[in-house]
Design a protein around this nucleic acid. Structure first.
Length: 572
RNA sequence: CGGGCUGUAGCGCAGUUUGGCAGCGCACCUGCUUUGGGAGCAGGGGGUCGCCGGUUCAAAUCCGGCCAGCCCGACCA
C-alpha cells in the first residue's frame, strides 16, 4: 500500500472524549471512528487488525476441530421465550418488528440458534461436534464505554460443543481452554484464566480469561502465592476471625435516635464496630421479598446472590416495600424474631454471638444477638464481596484484587439449552438423551483494544507483529530526492516479494510528521530511506518496541526486516 | 435507571456570566521557500453555533422542551 493513496486519518490532538488508552490511540491513529454510543466504524487500518485477530482465532479453533458456520442476526422472538432468556436478557436485547408485525430479536449470542440446528443430530455416533462462527452480536449495554472495550455492536467468535456426556464436554472444554491460551499468546495479550460466574449464560461452570488493566470492568481476586484466581463475582476468602466476647443471655433493645448507617452505629455510644454488626438488606428476588444478612463490614456481591438463588430478576427492595414487609425503615432493620420470610445469611455470620443489629423499630437496635439462636436463617450462603488482603481460600496467603478486561469466556452449559429446545440424540441403548453442550466466546474488537491497552507507550501503539495493520513501513524521508524515492520503492517491493505485509510512506510530508505517524500507528518495523544514509549506501531499520535502530546496506535491508519479522513470529 | 459534565468548521477549543458582524490553533486549498523528528511567508475555502419552540428591534448567548455524547454510580439499610 502506498500511504499517499491510503485513508489513514491520524489526528494531531487526542480526542476529547477518550479516556482509556486504547480508545484514545485507536481513534487518534485512524483505526476507528465512533458512530454513536457503543457503535464504531472500522477504518482500513482497524479492519486489517480485526482481520488478523480473526485469522488467529480461526486457525486455533480449526486446529481443535471447529467447523465454521454463519448464523443469522435476526432471530424470532419465540425461540428466546422458549429458553427463558427473553426475560433473563431482556435489558440488553435489541428487539424490533418486521412489516408483518412479527417480533424479532437481534442476536446477542447464538446458543438458541445453534441448538436448533443441533436438533438434526440424531445419534450419539455423530458426536462430538464442534461448531463455531465469527459474527456480529448486538447487546444493548446500559453503559457502553472506553471505545472498543464495551460496545453494543461487536464481532464475536462463538463456538459450541455437542457431546453425549459430561466427559465429552470436559474434553471439549479443555480443548478450548488450551486453544484460548494459544490465541491470547499469539495476540500478545497476557490473559489469565479465572473462575467465573456463568451469569445469564447458565450452566455448571465457566472460566474467564482476564487481562489485568485499569481500563477493565471486572475485578479479579488473585493469590500470588498459590495461583488461585477468581472473578470477584465468584471469589471466596477465609474471613478474618472476630472475637465475640461473652455471649448475652438474650438480645437487648436500646434506643439509637438518628442512627441510620453502619458507620453511625460504630460511633454511637453503646454501639458496635462494623465487624460486630449485622447488615440487614432487603431484596426482591423475582418479586419475592428476601432478607439478606451480612457482617457489618462486608459488601453484598449481587451476582453471587443471583447465582446462589437462581433468581432471574434481582433488585433491592424500595423503601415502601421494606416498610410494608418489616414495619420499619432502612437504618433500623433487623431479622431477629422474623417468621414467614426467606432469610439468607452470609457464612461469615455463622456462629457469631453478641452481635448488634436493627430492632425493626425505627430508632432502635438490638445488642447481644446470637445469630443462630435468635434468627430463623433459611439458608446459609456465600454472598459477600472479597477484599484485597483477605486470606486466600486455598492457601491462606493474602489475596490481591486487580481490574481486568474479560478477553474470553468459556462455559459448560450442560443441557440448559438442549432440553427446552429438544436437541436430543439416541444413546447406545437407543434412549433419547439431551445433548451436553458448551459454549465459548472471544470478543474480536475487545481483544484489539486489549492489545493496545497492554502494548503502547507515550508515542502511540506498539503492535505485536501478529496483529499489526502492516508489519513494516518504508519511510521515504524526502520524496523529491530521486534516489530516495527509487530506493524506497524498491525496498518496499522487495519486502512484498518476501511476504512482508508492508506499506510505503510516500507522502510529501516533512520527516517529523512521517516518523510521528509511524510511531503513533505502531508499525513494528520502520525502514527509513533518506539522502543522508544513501550517501553511505545504507538505510535505517528501526524496531518500534525498543526504539533501537541499525544501519543496513541497501541491498540487505528487505531481507533483514523479513528475518526479524520471521523471528518475532516464531516466538508466537 | 440516578448523579455530574459537555454539544460552536474535519480535530482541539474560546466566545455564553453582561444578547449586538461567529472567532483562534491545527488540518485543508494555491503559490514560493524548506526537507532526518509534527516548517516559514503570503493568499484562500470551509459554519443549519445539537434540534424544536419562546422572549426580543436583535439569540451561539436569555427561557422551556427534546436529542446526542462523555464520566461516576447503579449493594452499603
Amino acid at each position: 500500500m502506498r500511504w499517499s493513496k491510503a485513508f489513514i486519518p491520524t489526528l494531531r490532538d487526542d480526542p476529547a472524549d477518550a479516556e482509556a488508552a486504547s480508545h484514545r490511540l485507536l481513534v487518534r491513529a485512524g483505526f476507528i471512528r465512533q458512530l454513536m454510543a457503543g457503535v464504531y466504524s472500522m477504518l482500513p487500518l482497524g479492519f486489517r487488525v480485526r482481520a488478523k485477530v480473526m485469522g488467529i482465532i480461526r486457525e486455533e479453533i480449526e486446529a481443535i476441530g471447529g467447523q465454521e458456520f454463519l448464523l443469522p442476526e435476526l432471530h424470532p422472538r419465540e425461540i428466546w421465550e422458549r429458553t427463558g432468556r427473553l426475560e433473563a436478557m431482556r435489558d440488553i436485547l435489541f428487539t424490533l418488528e418486521d412489516s408483518r408485525g412479527g417480533e424479532l430479536v437481534l442476536g446477542p449470542t447464538h446458543e438458541e440458534i445453534f441448538t436448533t440446528i443441533a436438533g438434526e443430530l440424531t445419534s450419539y455416533r455423530q458426536l462430538p461436534q464442534l461448531w463455531y462462527q465469527i459474527q456480529t452480536k448486538f447487546r444493548d449495554e446500559p453503559r457502553p464505554k472506553a471505545g472498543l472495550l464495551r460496545v453494543r455492536e461487536f464481532t464475536m467468535k462463538d463456538s459450541y460443543s455437542f457431546d453425549i456426556d459430561a466427559e465429552g464436554l470436559d474434553r471439549q472444554f479443555d480443548a478450548h481452554f488450551d486453544a484460548y491460551t494459544r490465541i491470547f499468546e499469539r495476540l500478545g495479550v497476557p490473559a489469565i484464566p479465572v473462575v467465573a460466574s456463568s451469569g445469564a449464560m447458565g450452566g455448571s461452570g465457566s472460566v474467564e480469561f482476564m487481562v489485568a488493566s485499569e481500563a477493565g470492568e471486572d475485578d479479579v481476586a488473585h493469590c500470588p502465592s498459590c495461583g488461585y484466581a477468581a472473578n470477584v463475582e465468584r471469589a471466596t476468602a477465609r474471613p478474618f476471625p472476630v472475637e465475640d466476647g461473652e455471649p448475652a443471655a438474650a438480645p437487648e433493645r436500646f434506643p439509637t435516635p438518628g442512627v441510620r448507617t453502619i458507620a453511625d452505629l460504630e460511633t454511637f455510644p453503646g454501639g458496635a464496630v462494623a465487624e460486630r454488626q449485622i447488615k440487614t438488606l432487603v431484596y426482591m428476588l423475582d418479586g419475592e421479598p428476601t432478607i439478606v444478612l451480612l457482617r457489618g463490614d462486608d459488601a453484598l456481591m449481587e451476582q453471587k446472590l443471583q447465582d446462589v438463588t437462581g433468581a432471574v430478576e434481582v433488585r433491592p427492595a424500595t423503601g415502601s416495600e421494606i416498610v410494608e414487609l418489616l414495619g420499619a425503615s432502612p437504618g433500623s432493620l433487623g431479622a431477629v424474631g422474623l417468621q414467614d420470610v426467606r432469610i439468607l445469611a452470609d457464612e461469615a455470620l455463622r456462629g457469631r454471638r453478641n452481635m448488634t443489629t436493627g430492632a425493626n423499630l425505627d430508632d432502635h437496635h438490638l445488642r447481644g444477638v446470637d445469630v443462630e439462636r435468635d434468627i430463623a436463617v433459611s439458608e446459609w450462603v456465600d454472598v459477600r464481596t472479597v477484599r484485597a488482603g483477605e486470606p486466600c481460600p486455598s492457601c491462606g496467603e493474602p489475596l490481591e484484587v486487580f481490574r481486568a478486561i474479560e478477553a474470553g469466556h468459556i462455559f459448560k452449559l450442560g443441557t440448559k439449552y438442549s432440553e427446552p429446545l429438544g436437541a436430543t440424540v439416541l444413546d447406545a441403548e437407543g434412549k433419547a438423551v439431551p445433548i451436553v453442550m458448551g459454549s465459548y466466546g472471544i470478543g474480536v474488537e475487545r481483544n484489539m483494544a486489549a492489545v493496545v491497552e497492554v502494548h503502547h507507550d507515550d508515542k502511540g501503539i506498539v503492535w505485536p507483529v501478529s496483529v499489526a495493520p502492516y508489519e513494516a513501513v518504508v519511510t521515504i524521508v524526502k520524496v523529491s530526492d530521486t534516489d530516495s524515492w527509487e530506493t524506497g520503492k524498491r525496498i518496499y517491493e522487495e519486502l512484498l516479494a518476501l511476504g512482508v505485509d508492508a506499506i510505503v510512506d510516500d507522502r510529501e510530508e516533512r520527516p517529523g510528521v512521517k516518523f510521528n505517524d509511524a510511531e503513533l500507528i505502531g508499525f513494528p518495523y520502520r525502514v527509513t530511506v533518506g539522502p543522508r544514509g544513501l550517501a553511505d549506501g545504507v538505510v535505517e531499520v528501526t524496531e518500534r518496541r525498543s526504539g533501537t535502530s541499525e544501519e543496513v546496506v541497501v541491498a540487505a535491508a528487505a531481507a533483514r526486516v523479513a528475518d526479524q519479522i520471521a523471528a518475532a513470529k516464531a516466538l508466537l
